[in-house]
Structures are given as structure tokens and as C-alpha cells.
Design a protein around this nucleic acid. Structure first.
Length: 424
RNA sequence: GGAGAGGUGGCCGAGCGGUUGAAGGCACUCGCCUCGAAAGCGAGCAAGGGUGAAAGUCCUUCGGGGGUUCGAAUCCCCCCCUCUCCGCCA
């Protein structure tokens, strides 16, 4: 949600900024509804004020022993008009919200305005593309050889896109999760175990609802949504709260499974673990004072980068162009690991500053000092990291001639010192 | 899932149809007092929104939504949450 007052005062700037994300977007209807909305509020409230005023005279009349019948008759007329005005206001507000809730965030000034993903700017590169002096196997071939992933049976018990991790595959991924959680906890992020199902209010807060409802699994019986990322649950954590400034920044980390319907991405060449309906991810989430949020974004980014570096994988970090940003983000860094089997970089982390977009939707505020007015704080999220995709990188980049996989050193303590994954 | 109790301001807690946006207390802020502090005394202390240059003014909000009524924190209906007991269960 954007600040309607800001849009009202800077309609041109707002429209231009949003057009860098959605070509041809116009704010004229929103602005017109805003005008209508405020007019309707004024009318409705003045009628209500009169209603209250006349209402207060009635007990006085009665106390004085006079008849109040005439006042009551007048009041019912006012009440009728007032009711009509309120109904009209509700209608206008519903339409206003429908549009306002659908608008994405305004890109930060350091974000290149472009609709072309090709323009994403590489801001950092680590390592180099690995080369192999033996016949290279992609992660599916490695996993098949080692017997550590089972897609067929995953499809049997659920459907396509629900892989099963087997034996050392399961252990390796668990090692990744534990490694990342320990890293993050060491950086001062409070570990949380989160619900995987969220209510619709929480869905709205993060910006997932209403626009992307079709990307989430929905438990209609209880009207709960299955989280596509821990970010959604974390966004709801401090909903409707006013936190004291000295509590900031609030930093959290959590592992959750993530569930995505991936509607509309059917039939891609993304085989194996690249894109699934269920995958695992460790998330970082910060709530900070507005003047600290861009500093915090760099922190999230460096945490994620550091973890990838410790795993020894080649990656690049990009500053996304406006057209590639997620709904809630004002600025996003993607960290992309080179996956030789796909012959391209793939996102393992996305770190975003959502500024006050989510805070406004979820009414998450803070107070400066004891006297200060509550203000919206800024929220940020970053993956750290998507372990399913990391698995691909490890299986492909750490394979040897015999099809075995060397365990990255950073993970060995999490596998009881095991150095190799071989055929079992 | 069944039965009961309850959800009021930052916190505790009164109110149970009409100047109650809400008594009282705690916490907090300012002033007095003090060498300083505590205690004591005095004053202040919700959020959101409309309008206005501002002072102000008006509206909404006592878990959420609907209803009864001229008028609801107070009465009725539905839902959510918390607690206790029973059932079920990892």
C-alpha cells in the first residue's frame, strides 16, 4: 500500500514511478475516487454530527417533562439520509481499496527504471564458472546415480513438483538448513519456528493478497493460505503493533518449507529441483526505522552472500530493474548461483527493502521516544538461502569423475564430518 | 468437537440502555518540594480519519461483523481469540 497523501500531492511523480513497473498505468481513477471518498466522508460525518446533536437533546427534553416526539421524528429522517451517505461511502471505499491494494511499491531512486530484465545490473561477482575435465553430469544425473532424490514417488504421493530427498540427500539438505540457521543466529537474527498456514489479513500485509491469490494454496475450509515463503508469516508477526524505537531493529530468521502453485509456469525446461511446488528456504526478516532501511538492505545482502561464499559456489548479485521487482519491494538484490547443468545463473536469494509498503498494509508502527507519534516502520526480507536450489549447485559443482559429491567444508560439521557422498 | 468463563486505553480494572472516549489505580511526562533523589502535591497522558494556514472543530473506535433502539461498552444474532473442564490426538 502506498501513502495516498503522497500520491495526492505528487500525482505526476507517482504515476511516472509506477509506470516504470507497469507500463501505461494511470492514477486518474484512484485520484478521482480519493476525491469522491473524502467528499463522501464529509457529507456522511456532517449528517452523523447532526444526528448526534439532536439525539442529545432528547434526554434533556424528557428530563424537563416535555414531549420529544417531534425530535424523534426529525431524527429518523436524518438517520435515513445518514445511512444512505454511509452506504455510498462504503461503496466508494471498496472500489478505492481494490485499486490501491493492487498497486506495487514505488522503486527507490537507486533502482534503474526499465521494464527489461536484461538491464538488471550486476553489482558483484564471486568465484568463477567451474570447468570439468570429465563428462559433466547435471544434478538429476548425479542424484540418480547416488539415489538421493526421488521425483517419481513424490509424484505418486502428491503430484509433480513434490520431490523426495532420500538418505544422504535428506541429510545434506538438513545440513544446509542447520548451517544457514546457525550462521544467521550468529549474526544476531532471532530464530523462529513459524506457522506454515496464514490467515488472509496476514496475506494482505505482505502484498501477496489480493493480487497473487492464485499463486498460493488455499485451505478453503478454514480460509487459510499455505505460505509461499516465510516472509508472509514474518510480515504478520508484528501486525497491528506499535513497537518502541529502542526495540528496533527487530531481526528474525526462520526455516520453512515453501509452497507455490506456480500457475502459468507449466511446461518449462526447469527440470528436477529448479522449480517445484514445495521447496525449503531459510529466511531473514528485519523491521527497522525508516532512516535505517537501506543500510539494513546491505546487511541482508551481505549475510546471504557470505553464506554462499562459505559454500564455495560461484554467484553474481544483481540490482533488479524496476520492472523486475516484486509487488512490495522498493529495491531488490538477487543473488544468483551459477548452475552449470542449466547453463545459467539461478536465484538462490532475493533481498528486498519494502520500505513502509507492508507496514502500512499491516499497520506495523513504531514510536520515537515516549512522546512521539506512531510512524510506519520499514520491513525487509531476504532469503538465506533457498536450499533446494543450493542442492543443485552443490551436486553439480562438487561432483567428481566417479559421480560422487564432495561435501563442502562448511557443511561437514553438520554431517558428522562426512566428506563425500557416494553411491550407497 | 462439547460445556462453562471471559475479551474495555501502555498495563490492571470499574461500568451493564442516555453528557462514559470511557471512574479508579499503576506506569509515563512536566511543574512544585529537595543539596539531590524518594515520598508527597498539582497538571498532563489513546489511535485513526475529515476539514482548516493554524488554533480548533467534527466523525469513528470498549475483540470483529450484523441487528434492536431516537440513543448501545451496556440488549439480541453470527464469527474470532484467551482461559478452565470433558472428548480426541502427534
Amino acid at each position: 500500500m502506498l501513502d495516498i497523501k503522497w500520491i495526492r500531492d505528487n500525482p505526476k511523480a507517482a504515476e511516472e514511478a509506477l509506470q516504470s513497473r507497469i507500463p501505461g498505468l494511470e492514477l486518474t481513477e484512484l485520484l478521482s475516487l480519493d476525491r469522491q471518498r473524502r467528499d463522501a466522508i464529509t457529507l456522511s460525518e456532517s449528517l452523523r454530527a447532526e444526528q448526534n446533536k439532536v439525539g442529545k437533546e432528547i434526554p434533556q427534553r424528557k428530563k424537563a417533562g416535555e414531549s420529544a416526539d417531534e425530535l424523534i421524528a426529525r431524527l429518523s429522517q436524518i438517520k435515513k439520509e445518514s445511512q444512505e451517505a454511509q452506504d455510498r461511502l462504503k461503496e466508494i471505499e471498496a472500489r478505492f481499496e481494490e485499486i490501491a491494494l493492487g498497486l506495487p511499491n514505488v522503486p527507490h531512486e537507486s533502482v534503474l527504471r526499465s521494464l527489461n530484465k536484461e538491464d538488471n545490473q550486476v553489482v558483484k561477482t564471486f568465484g568463477e564458472k567451474p570447468s570439468f575435465d570429465f563428462p559433466f553430469r547435471n544434478h538429476l544425473e548425479v542424484a540418480d546415480h547416488l539415489g538421493i532424490l526421488d521425483f517419481e514417488r513424490g509424484a505418486k504421493i502428491t503430484g509433480a513438483g513434490f520431490p523426495i530427498y532420500v538418505g544422504d540427500g535428506a541429510r545434506l539438505e538438513r545440513a544446509l538448513l542447520n548451517f544457514l540457521l546457525d550462521q544467521n543466529e550468529g549474526r544476531g537474527f532471532v530464530p523462529l519456528g513459524l506457522p506454515y498456514l496464514v490467515n488472509s489479513e496476514t496475506g494482505y500485509t505482505s502484498g501477496q493478497l489480493p493480487k497473487f491469490a492464485d499463486q498460493m494454496y488455499h485451505v478453503t475450509e478454514d480460509d487459510l493460505y499455505v505460505i509461499p515463503t516465510a516472509e508472509i508469516a514474518l510480515g504478520g508477526l508484528h501486525r497491528d503493533e506499535i513497537v518502541l524505537e529502542e526495540k528496533l531493529p527487530l531481526r528474525y530468521t526462520a526455516y520453512t518449507a515453501c509452497f507455490r502453485r506456480e500457475a502459468g509456469t507449466y511446461g518449462t525446461e526447469e527440470r528436477g529441483l529448479v522449480r517445484n511446488h514445495q521447496f525449503n528456504k531459510v529466511e531473514l526478516f528485519s523491521l527497522v526505522a525508516p532512516d535505517k532501511s537501506y543500510e539494513e538492505l546491505e546487511l541482508l545482502r551481505s549475510c546471504a552472500e557470505d553464506s554462499v561464499e562459505k559454500l564455495g559456489l560461484h554467484y553474481q548479485t544483481t540490482n533488479l530493474v524496476s520492472g523486475d521487482l516484486g509487488q512490495a519491494a522498493a529495491k531488490t538484490y538477487d543473488i544468483e548461483v551459477w548452475l552449470p547443468g542449466q547453463n545459467r545463473y539461478y536465484e538462490v536469494s532475493s533481498c528486498s527493502n519494502c520500505e513502509a509498503y507492508q507496514a502500512r498494509r499491516g499497520n506495523i508502527r513504531f514510536r520515537r521516544g515516549k512522546e512521539g507519534k506512531p510512524e510506519f516502520l520499514h520491513t525487509l526480507n531476504g532469503s538465506s538461502l533457498a536450499t533446494s536450489r543450493l542442492m543443485i549447485g552443490i551436486l553439480e559443482c562438487y561432483q567428481d569423475q566417479d559421480g560422487n559429491v564432495t561435501v563442502p567444508e562448511a557443511l561437514r560439521p553438520y554431517l558428522g564430518g562426512q566428506e563425500k557422498i557416494g553411491k550407497s
